[in-house]
């Protein structure tokens, strides 16, 4: 069996490997996604594999798929993440490398994984942790359509490629951490909905938008809901606000004599 994967003479392969490390490390100037893309692309090109994917943990330590080589691999990784069981998930959890050499042989470690992998057309898997300070921050997942062991040279190269990505990703992580992507998108959406509902109320209540914004926030407080919650209900027609807003008077607290 050739270890060149059809990449030509050993010298040419050497220069390809050099390029691979360069491009993966270039993620230092881009972001984690750049490194993940390069890692997936070069794994497919340099290793004897038919499928590859990169998973990374988000700020909350939740593992997510970032890049995959094909739709079938995306489906396979999604199933594995949902089940919380499989070589990739386990590799992240234990910061170790895991092999599954034949998906047709029942494996008690991950009972459901073999069948899912076969649906994706894969017979063997190798999960390589992307380590930072000896702790997995992500996983490089490699799949082969034929059963059997991964060659030693491929195994070592896969580890080295994952290490290169780790350097690129961990430097980006040292940037000050704010909210995660989902929170940012939800926060901007909430703010936009509040302003739209404000505009609608300005028309309905015949008041200027600034006043309408105040009315919406006050009504939200009185209803015990967040402004964006109430805004969304106003826009969908599930809530209406009429003036004057009800005034609730609280009985004065007993004053001690």
């Amino acid at each position: 069996m050739s270890i060149d994967n059809g990449a030509g003479p050993a010298g040419e392969r050497g220069s390809l490997i050099g390029r691979a490390f360069g491009e993966i490390a270039a993620g230092r100037e881009g972001d984690a996604m750049t490194a993940a893309h390069a890692l997936t692309r070069w794994s497919m090109r340099l290793l004897d594999v038919e499928g590859a994917g990169v998973m990374m943990a988000d700020h909350h330590g939740v593992l997510r798929t970032m890049v995959v080589s094909s739709e079938a691999i995306r489906v396979l990784e999604a199933a594995e993440l949902q089940a919380g069981s499989g070589p990739c998930v386990e590799s992240h959890r234990r910061s170790l490398s895991f092999f599954l050499l034949d998906t047709e042989v029942p494996d008690t470690r991950w009972p459901g994984f073999g069948a899912q992998a076969r649906v994706a057309g894969m017979r063997a898997a190798h999960a390589v942790p992307v380590l930072h300070d000896n702790e997995a921050i992500g996983v490089l997942n490699l799949f082969r359509s034929a059963p059997g062991a991964f060659s030693e040279s491929d195994t070592v190269l896969a580890w080295e490629l994952a290490d290169a990505a780790s350097a690129a990703v961990s430097t980006r992580r040292s940037a000050p951490a704010g909210a995660d992507a989902g929170q940012v998108r939800a926060a901007v959406a909430g703010a936009a909905l509040v302003e739209r509902a404000t505009g609608m109320l300005a028309v309905r209540l015949r008041i200027d938008p600034d006043t309408a914004g105040g009315v919406l926030r006050l009504a939200a407080t009185q209803a015990g809901r967040s402004p964006s919650d109430l805004a969304s209900a106003v826009i969908s027609g599930e809530a209406s606000i009429v003036l004057p807003l009800p005034v609730i008077l609280f009985a004065p607290a007993d004053e001690p004599e």
Binding site: A187, G190, A191, E195, R196, G199, V203
Partner: peptide, 18 residues
């Protein structure tokens, strides 16, 4: 209070609501 949009971005969304 949730995120505050830049002034014009907020006004644009109010106009959308109108």
């Amino acid at each position: 209070g949730g995120v505050v949009l830049p002034v014009y971005a907020g006004e644009l969304q109010q106009a959308v609501g109108i």
